[in-house]
């Protein structure tokens, strides 16, 4: 059993990153002074208890030509937004999917999704595909392409 301080230390190391090598867990375990199997069990526990949502590689979309991102916003009736949000959230091309408040009259949209692509045309094509596939053409939506990035830092963690 690991104590809470050990767990915190390992979680911190896991979010910072593992080496890419033949036996990455063994290498990290050695640097943390724990047993490899202990480390593997702990990661599994973190996955099972939903502390971490994913354990894998984090890529930089810009480096492979995905320069364009679009915030696609939808006006979905309140009693349907959970269903549509869940549906769109499962789509492999949608990276973020949140319900946020409308601010009428200026802002009628309550569902926010994020799409990435090489250019605007490819994102529009993907969006059309998503609309047809999910039969959601009846809802108003708007595409807000990013034209300039002033700041983009990784998610901050607190505490």
């Amino acid at each position: 059993m690991m104590n809470i301080n050990q767990q915190k230390r390992i979680l911190k190391a896991l979010s910072k990153g593992l080496p890419i090598c033949e036996e990455p867990y063994k290498e990290l375990a050695e640097s943390l002074n724990v047993d490899e199997q202990q480390l593997l069990d702990f990661i599994q526990e973190l996955k099972d208890s939903n502390v971490i949502s994913r354990f894998g590689m984090i890529i930089n979309p810009e480096s492979v030509g995905y320069h364009c991102n679009a915030l696609v916003v939808w006006d979905i009736p309140d009693d349907e937004v959970d269903e549509i949000g869940t549906l769109l959230g499962l789509h492999e091309k949608i990276s973020l999917c949140y319900k946020r408040p409308r601010q009428l009259p200026d802002w009628p949209y309550n569902l926010f999704t994020m799409l990435h692509g090489k250019n605007q045309q490819s994102i529009v094509a993907e969006l059309n595909h998503i609309v047809n596939e999910n039969d959601i053409g009846q809802y108003a939506c708007d595409i807000l392409f990013s034209s300039k990035t002033f700041k983009h830092s990784g998610a901050r963690t607190f505490g």
């Binding site: 979680l11 994913r54 890529i59």
Partner: peptide, 9 residues
Amino acid sequence: VIRRFAAVK
């Protein structure tokens, strides 16, 4: 291209 091999909290 790969930023990190890590746990996403």
